[in-house]
């Protein structure tokens, strides 16, 4: 059994130590907002915050979680920046199929928490998640809107 803290709550999890955090969240804890896309940390659909840092949970084993505090999309609106990001996502009408957007919102929240006024280059560096619907421009617009306050 491993203890992990997700969205401010403690959980005891029975899973092998090499189980990716993604599958602990989705299948063990039933938090399906975090998505599986590629399993090799390329697409970013599985992005969560680990101690505030955007991290691809499909390649992050349970045994590495330790005392870290994990934030998932399920609690993103409880975070002030996260709520603003979500509002901007709705306002700019970012999502199409929506499948990658949990990860995009998490990555954007992490960026804006660390860098409230990112340049376009900062956005390009931080926002590397894939979107098959090609919503990249609207994602950048939404981030700029939050940064502009």
């Amino acid at each position: 059994m491993a203890g992990i803290n997700v969205n401010g709550r403690d959980f005891e999890v029975a899973a092998e130590p090499d189980t990716p955090l993604l599958w602990v969240l989705r299948d063990t804890l039933g938090m399906t907002g975090t998505k599986y896309g590629c399993g090799v940390a390329m697409c970013g659909a599985c992005t969560v915050l680990i101690d505030g840092q955007a991290t691809r949970s499909c390649q992050f084993p349970l045994e590495s979680v330790g005392q870290s505090r994990i934030t998932t999309i399920e609690s993103i609106e409880e975070d002030e920046i996260g709520r603003k990001v979500v509002d901007a996502w709705v306002d700019i009408q970012v999502p199409q199929c929506g499948y990658c957007q949990s990860g995009q919102v998490m990555a954007a929240t992490s960026l804006l928490k660390q860098n409230p006024h990112p340049t376009d280059a900062d956005i390009a560096d931080a926002m590397t998640n894939l979107c098959r619907c090609g919503t990249y421009n609207r994602i950048a617009d939404a981030i700029r809107q939050v940064a502009a306050g």
């Binding site: 399906t32 999309i73 996502w89 709705v90 949990s102």
Partner: peptide
Amino acid sequence: MPRLDARDKSTGKAIYAID
């Protein structure tokens, strides 16, 4: 008109087959 599903899709609440 805004999409009906934009907020659910921005907050992980939209449910796909995989979920």
